[in-house]
Nucleic acid binder design. Structure first.
Length: 211
DNA sequence: CACCAGGCAAGTA
DNA sequence: TACTTGCATGGT
C-alpha cells in the first residue's frame, strides 16, 4: 500500500462496507443539520429535524420566516439553541445576499463556497466543510473530533495538530473525489463510534490494528 | 451523579 | 498570540 491514509480507508471499507452517509434527505436539511450538530449528538439533532418535518417547517422559506425567538424554541432539543438560532439566521441571510437561493449558492466553486461559508459568524471549518461536502457535493475533506482522535491514536498527527494540517494530510494523499471523501469520513465516524471511543484508548477489536 | 456528544466565538492576559 | 470560558440539551 502506498500510504497509511489510503491503507486506513481500504481497511475500514473492507470491514464496514459502504456507508452511504449523511443522514439528511436534501441539501437544505444537511446544511441545517451541520449547524445543529455542533458539539451535539446527532440523536438530539434528529429530534429537531423530525419535529420540523412534521410541522412542515423543514425548508429554507419556512424557517427563514420564523422570528428568531420562535426558531430558537423549535430547535431547543439540539442544545445551544439561542446561539444556533442566530447562526442559522445569519447563514440564511448570507445566502440570500450572496446568491438569492441555495442552489445558486452551492453552484460556486469548492474553494469559493468554503470561503464564503467561513466568513459567516458561527460557521467554522468543520461546519463549512460538512456543508460543502455533504450538502453541495464538492470535494473537501471533513475533519472532526473523531478524525482527530483516530489519527492521534495511530500517531499520524501531533496532539496539537490544527484543522488545516489534518485536512491537508488527507487532501495530499488521496485523489480529489467527493464520493471518496464522503465515504472515508463516514467510515471514520463509524469506527470511532464502535471502537475508538474516548474512554477506550486500547481500541479492542479495532480493524486498524497494526496499520 | 458525572460525563459525553460530528464547534465556535468572545474574552482575557 | 495562546489560553479560557460560555453556550444547553438529552442519553448513559
Amino acid at each position: 500500500m502506498s500510504n497509511r491514509i489510503e491503507e486506513i480507508h481500504t481497511r475500514l471499507f473492507a470491514h464496514f462496507g459502504p456507508q452511504h452517509w449523511w443522514p439528511g434527505e436534501t441539501p437544505f436539511e444537511i446544511m441545517l443539520g451541520a449547524v445543529l450538530t455542533q458539539n451535539t449528538s446527532w440523536r438530539n439533532v434528529s429530534m429537531v429535524i423530525e419535529s420540523l418535518r412534521r410541522e412542515g417547517l423543514l425548508s429554507f422559506d419556512a424557517l427563514e420566516a420564523l422570528p428568531l425567538e420562535v426558531l430558537a424554541e423549535k430547535i431547543r432539543p439540539s442544545g445551544y439553541y439561542n446561539q444556533k438560532a442566530k447562526r442559522i439566521k445569519g447563514l440564511f441571510a448570507a445566502i440570500r445576499a450572496e446568491s438569492g437561493d441555495l442552489e445558486a449558492f452551492f453552484a460556486q466553486s469548492t474553494h469559493t463556497l468554503r470561503e464564503k461559508l467561513l466568513a459567516i459568524k458561527g460557521i467554522g471549518p468543520e461546519t463549512a466543510d460538512s456543508i460543502t461536502l455533504y450538502g453541495a457535493g464538492k470535494p473537501v475533506f471533513v475533519v472532526d473530533a473523531y478524525t482527530y482522535r483516530i489519527l492521534l491514536r495511530h500517531d499520524l498527527i501531533a496532539e496539537d495538530a490544527g484543522y488545516e494540517e489534518i485536512q491537508d494530510l488527507f487532501l495530499g494523499k488521496l485523489p480529489t473525489d467527493a464520493q471518496l471523501f464522503n465515504e472515508y469520513h463516514a467510515l471514520l465516524v463509524r469506527l470511532a463510534k464502535e471502537y475508538c471511543k474516548k474512554t477506550n484508548p486500547l481500541c479492542d477489536g479495532c480493524p486498524l490494528q497494526g496499520v
